[in-house]
Amino acid sequence: MIQTEGLTKRFTKSKKEAPITAVDGLTLNVAEGEVFGFLGPNGAGKTTTVRMLTSLIAPSEGRAFVDKLQVGKDDQKIRERVGILTETPGMYERLSAERNLTIFARLYGVKDVNGQVEKYLRMLGLWERRFDEVGSFSKGMRQKLAIARALLHEPRIVFLDEPTSGLDPEAAKLVRDFIEELKTAGRTIFICTHNLDEADRLCDRIGIFKTRLITVDSPENLREKLFGRKVVFHLQAMLPGLAERVRGLPAVKDVQVVDSRLLVSLEDPEAQNPGIVRALVEAGAGVQFVGELRHSLEDIYLEMIRQEEAQS
């Protein structure tokens, strides 16, 4: 649905200064119906990428295709087919929520303007406030209205730039739930976010990006690639020599002791856990419970960024 080949964007402030590279050789493939998370620090070039993919700005080099349409050649058609929630979604403050949506529905050439406006106002819980000026709306309500605006023309591809930024937990959850609904409806969603927990929950794959693409994979695969699979054995007490005994077992790659817990790195925990539990019980250890150690996406993200910085 979205393909980029060596997509690059440079900005020139003045003729005297050297151009600044915001996006460097981005090559990416986002499949239809996929929720793709685009993660990176502030100033990494995420918004610039979204602007290029939505035909708001032109690439300096490389090519990008959105729904088989080429950025730079089919810009108007691309804008017809994609929906975008911009990082700072401005509204016409003096106009009502309904009027705001009606304007955009007409600009997108929606046939049933009133029907679509009503559908999304109801869906996002704004129907009762439809005649109120947007200037009186809370940040959460504005964000919901901006999401509705991005979806009025039923785009197959939706770009969401920081969709829950600055929202209170309740509003953020509502937006996330709505994105889940969009995902279920089979839309292709490209999310730029700083909220790693959100990306972990929503995204099929994530790309970690800092001017250039550092890595792309599913959150699970990234965890495995970076940290391997680890199992935590909670014991009643740590007996002397227990760690060494476990380390000597076949297929155990590494063992760490943290208080009364054993952190064991394994290739295939599902197959190997019963043997380890047996060995621990035989050695006299009281096994309280066993669980997989799941590194957060934050750990992955920070590790990737650290590695990238070390390389550069």
């Binding site: 108007q76 804008r79 911009t86 979604p89 509204m91 016409y92 600009l107 997108y108 050439g109």
Partner: peptide, 10 residues
């Protein structure tokens, strides 16, 4: 900040 969404339309 309403210009960007406006320019993002066709």
């Amino acid at each position: 900040r309403s210009l960007e969404p406006l320019l993002a339309t066709p």
